[in-house]
Design a binder for these strands. Sequence first.
DNA 1: CGAGGCGGCTGCAACGTTGTAATTCAGGCG
DNA 2: CGCCTGAATTACAACGTTGCAGCCGCCTCG
Lengths: 344, 344
Amino acid sequence: MAATLRDVAALAGVSIKTVSNVVHDFEHIRPATRERVRAAIDELGYKPNISARSLRSGRTGVIGLALPELSLSYFAELADAIIQAAERRGTSVIIEQTGGDRDREIQLLASPHRQFTDGLIFSPLGMGNDDASYLNVDYPLVLLGERIFAGPTDHVTMHNVAAAHAATRHLLATGRRRIAVIGAHQDEVIGSAGLRLRGYREALAEAGIEFDPALIAHTTLWHRANGATAMRELLATGVQFDAVFALNDTLALGAMRVLQESGRRIPLDVAVVGFDDLDESSYCLPALTTIDPGRDEIADTAVRILLERISGEAADVAPREIEAGFRLVQRESTDLVPADSPVV
Amino acid sequence: MAATLRDVAALAGVSIKTVSNVVHDFEHIRPATRERVRAAIDELGYKPNISARSLRSGRTGVIGLALPELSLSYFAELADAIIQAAERRGTSVIIEQTGGDRDREIQLLASPHRQFTDGLIFSPLGMGNDDASYLNVDYPLVLLGERIFAGPTDHVTMHNVAAAHAATRHLLATGRRRIAVIGAHQDEVIGSAGLRLRGYREALAEAGIEFDPALIAHTTLWHRANGATAMRELLATGVQFDAVFALNDTLALGAMRVLQESGRRIPLDVAVVGFDDLDESSYCLPALTTIDPGRDEIADTAVRILLERISGEAADVAPREIEAGFRLVQRESTDLVPADSPVV
DNA sequence: CGAGGCGGCTGCAACGTTGTAATTCAGGCG
DNA sequence: CGCCTGAATTACAACGTTGCAGCCGCCTCG
């Protein structure tokens, strides 16, 4: 069986508590004693028992990460970044998938898993502003995303409006005037879709271009398939457009595929901008112009402020609202010249 | 504070142990008592403390999943499937990323995290057959992938050789004769690359076609960028080919991009087959013919046999080697006719 | 009618750790 | 030379749960 403090103490000829002190780098220990204990620890291969420690101290060193699903590249890349950020700080991550379902999200906030984790990073998709009260939980919670604002917790988010504004302005700067939108949500005001659409409209207004509802394609989900379907429907209406602002990259990839199938050339006939800067967005053809929403910054900030709450450092700090910086990444899909010149 | 067994016992007027028995559906309890305890549990909102339970029982209800990185779509989709399979069986999953680094992989097998988890599903990328002895651990372990065979543990894998054989035969059946390979590993015998290359050679031999080393492009990693680079290098050599077998989909996507940039039409000039059946492979243009390696089956099997080991059901079963079924998914990238006819 | 069995329940000890308070010890100072 | 101080160490009691042994009372059977 695994060695315990007791075993190490016996071998080193000290009390159990002294071993514990050595493990925790308590300062008042004679160097000789410390050495003896260290040697015993090595010899027995002692590893602290986390269950016992957490039973005693109430901490587990594990945080939860609740997100819609890992199969959506954005969340896979976010999870990657969060796990790395947590690991840098000596913390592990349990991932729970909600499928974006409101009921599962609410359920998860009160699940027994919660007391296995010291805190939770939560990216809801089904819940809305009206559900903010569910976030009144008795454990540290950091909220991600754009579904709920003015909740009772820390919140890390992106500059959705400003970034969408920048993306749209970029399309306008390349001379496009009829910019279709893929992925809008009916009557949504907040939420990623609502906010990004607002940035789009602001940029149009700024340029003195009238908003045309016929250019807005709605989808409930933001999978590739939805981007493809939405684009197919848009083409079927016969409405004219010379650019597409897809509200995320995955939609953009689905839409681009349909555009190309239909014989349109990107960016010659239609320019396309996405949002998220997925890994694959730089490898599709043409490479996709997009918004880098500061994923690493979001991940690092979320983990940092969650651990601040857990440790109590930030005990009496009011809920914080932090927006990560964004960046427009220009690639071929909005080039002024055709992108089909050979690279080889 | 959270309610404990003691609180519930006091409220229900029974002993602490009786409450524990009710929680565990122990059979010899009078219905009246059971009801009284249930009511008290509901009233106090009692949730068992997992740390205490695991300290006492040695089980945590959490398994570890160690994989290279979530940013690689294959592993994101695998993690998705494993988390779902685990959840169906009431188990949570902690994900650890190794970056495919051998030393980190070895380290992780002995990390203190291990005693936080009841067992581990491990997908190594850096370790090789020579490292099999590191898998002699004192906790339940299920191995995934093709890096290590004949290890001392259960192993869930895919029919790499047969599937690669099928993929190659499919290309041959469409009339292709000069089939390039993207992603081979120098001198590798086992490992996904080695096995898939073997399937490729077997299919060639079967068709009486000589193996041409000039058609084999090597890459160390299997990211999009590597697929692109390898294809660029292959084109630069001037070698002629009419098909590409990319050893996974991600490589295929990178390679397709370069092929298209270079003006080659897929599948008219070059047919392409991948391996993995990623979500995105059905949405790229042209949609990618690939091998569905039975990801869900692998995930479900891995979780199932790991939990069997944990529960002790499979205590004296010899290490098992399980191969999931595969399936060739035919899409546009190997069509006999051009794929550029409009769909809209 | 008494022994035995069993359903229903309880009490106690332990899992490995850490916080608190207490104890020992060495050295400096009056 | 005794007292005080602070460094170094220890003893002990929890944390919430579960395994084990055992107790009571009722029922059954010889």
